[in-house]
Design a protein around this nucleic acid. Structure first.
Lengths: 203, 203
DNA sequence: CAGTTCATGTAACTGGTTACATGATTCG
DNA sequence: CGAATCATGTAACCAGTTACATGAACTG
């Protein structure tokens, strides 16, 4: 359900076309916490119109014909009701952390380090954008919107600090001590070695 | 594809049943960055077995019959190749931020504040678990796994700091200035008022 | 005038969840 | 002895993406 709602949310700023909405999600604020493809957007807009949450109008905008969607009264009401319902806790799916937390002791950490370096570059990019964007003199950002941008900044800065920390720990080989009350690690490593036909320590 | 891989990842620690894996994702480390339901787990395990990445064995464990899955050589190889491929940047979908960034100026912020308070409680819970878990004397956490836990800690602490900050800003009504070069906000607010049939400022 | 961007859409596919079915065992 | 938990599985459903189809306008 909340995909439809996030469409209403985008439309609450100003009437937009499907194409506009996609680009909104691509390089704007909304994109930081949500995303959607054309294959979702157009059918959903159609559905929302049939159900009376939005209406559409053809409009010429700099020589191009666009189909703009605008909220109806019902649409505004639905949108604001949605705003007032408690949001679900986000389900995080991050392959980097999934991989990192299963990186076993005698695996080569060079690849892991390069994953971290890649993430660092990507997050720096986004951070750059996030810092500049509310001051670019073009985009509309509400006062409350500024708070969410502030969060994105803090989150990314924290992540980057952690990445740097982790890279240097990995490079120096000064890993913290884990927890292994049952001696699981020894078994794990030998299961791996046996399966892969390795002798002693891995290269 | 990477759902299958995260199954291999879980199995890399020790042979497990479908049920074990589910609970692993529910209250353990893996659950912080990934999740999966029975309806995925069992069919995938079956498929992975057919393709030769894992094999299964019936085993009695404290009076209960379990079907444990274990990695084959092919399974280990596939798992470690996957570990070495660069992870995709995570797509964040967080309803709280989606809602917050579309919260318009003349909407009542009481609900928003209660959303933030709810998120605070939830994140505090998780933080408590994250802090205690690598010292609970039960679970296995590798040295590198400790780093990812450290990240979860830092992220949650940052989030909580931001939440407190934001709640007090909202309560005091001392919102930062936004950016509105084209006067979009005035139009937005009047579009809303007209649609909803409101007169002047909202209650 | 060829290639890119703007613009709208659909159909096939994928990847997952929800709900259901089933049964053994343990706990209060 | 009834409820909860352990344990495995399937079928129906749903929500999304990818790839495709199409065409106008603008750009070099």
């Amino acid at each position: 359900m909340s995909t439809e709602h996030s469409l209403l949310a985008v439309l609450s700023f100003w009437p937009s076309s499907g194409y506009d909405i996609k680009s909104e999600f691509e390089h704007k604020a909304a994109g930081l916490y949500w995303g959607m493809s054309y294959g979702s957007i157009y059918p959903k807009l159609k559905k929302l119109e049939e159900e009376g949450y939005v209406y559409s109008m053809e409009k010429e905008e700099n020589g191009r014909n666009k189909k703009l969607y605008e909220l109806t009264e019902k649409g505004w009401q639905e949108f604001e009701e949605w705003l007032c319902t408690p949001p679900a806790y986000p389900a995080v799916k991050d392959e980097l952390f999934m991989k990192m937390s299963t990186w076993h002791k005698d695996m080569d950490t060079r690849h892991l380090i390069s994953h971290l370096e890649k993430r660092k570059r990507e997050s720096e990019d986004i951070l750059g954008f996030v810092k500049e964007w509310p001051r670019n003199g073009i985009s509309y950002v509400s006062s409350i919107g500024m708070l969410t941008i502030r969060y994105a900044e803090m989150r990314l800065e924290t992540e980057l600090r952690w990445i740097d920390e982790s890279i240097s720990i990995l490079k120096a080989g000064e890993l913290p001590e884990g927890q292994d009350p049952t001696g699981a690690e020894k078994k794990l490593l030998s299961r791996r070695r046996e399966s892969l036909g390795l002798k002693s320590e891995d290269e």
